[in-house]
Design a protein around this nucleic acid. Structure first.
Lengths: 158, 158
DNA sequence: AAAGATATGTTATATCATAACTATATTGAA
DNA sequence: TTCAATATAGTTATGATATAACATATCTTT
């Protein structure tokens, strides 16, 4: 266990505004606890598991936090589109372009753990088409590509 | 708990042969325990969780089986390509066209729980292309579409 | 039959997630 | 403004998924 984390620095205004706007639009409440979870995720370079996130929050706030509480806040943040959950790794990350509704596709690097959220319109269209061909009424699509990110791929070559 | 399951009927020869051939090709051992897991999965119409599978096997064989044992057998069956794991539901299912190597895409019905394994070559190509554009060296792709299967979609209309 | 490799069994535990209930805070109507 | 309704957060317990470490058994090769 590292030293206790310092209190979270104020959230960069871009993100704070985004959270506020999103909540206002959807008539949802942006509570301090929810904002804290969002801020903590923003401070993570890579996706983190729920329990890693709990540990970070506990260290930051110097108190115990029940998993359920954080899971609920994560569910909330996902519901309003500020956070994504990776199915393959059970990890959570902030949405990198939450300014518009979108299906997300992820490139997960198995070497450094970084995850790139990409948007590919053609992909959505194609997936819809495939579903249609099977009479399937698509609701939600999970696309997660595992492999090596550009940096790790270069390093491997060397 | 329902009545104890009867011993597993002999595996239809098509599947048995497939398992045998696959193992022979890869110099892997097809043990009775592995075959039993494969047969049990074949008997399931829908994907099952590991623990559901364990319960089925235990009932069938009238003895306790440790989770780890079954997990290892599932890992084996996935490694040789006879079984798939669904990331979204943590469920296991037999591969429906294991005669050739392929990336799989799944259509998961949230109403009846059925899962359709589809192949879409265009999709793989497109995903590779998207990865390439990001300098990402793709290894493995997870595509899982949730929604309503053709039957459940019809029922909903009515 | 012995040696090495592979598979299985046993026990314990790590990791991920939610149920049921209580308490607190916020909102909205009288 | 106070009450009731709703939404959020906290508490305790437990369910669900998966693996670690080590012992035993089985198969393969010699």
């Amino acid at each position: 266990m590292p030293d206790q984390l310092p209190p979270m620095a104020p959230l960069a205004s871009r993100w704070r505004k985004l959270a506020e706007t999103t909540c206002r639009e959807k008539s949802e409440r942006l509570t301090p606890a929810r904002l804290a979870v969002y801020a903590e995720l923003l401070a993570c370079t890579n996706p983190v598991s729920a329990y890693e996130l709990i540990a970070l929050l506990e260290s930051r706030q110097n108190r115990k936090i029940a998993p359920l509480t954080v899971y609920r806040q994560l569910d909330f943040l996902m519901r309003i589109g500020l956070v994504h959950r990776l199915q393959s790794t059970h990890a959570y990350m902030v949405c990198s372009h939450p300014d518009h509704v979108h299906e997300s596709q992820f490139l997960l690097c198995s070497a450094c753990g970084s995850v790139d959220e990409v948007e590919a319109n053609g992909l959505e269209k194609l997936l819809t088409q495939i579903a249609d061909e099977h009479g399937f009424k698509s609701d939600n699509v999970v696309v997660e590509v595992k492999g090596l990110c550009i940096d790790c791929a270069k390093q491997e070559q060397a």
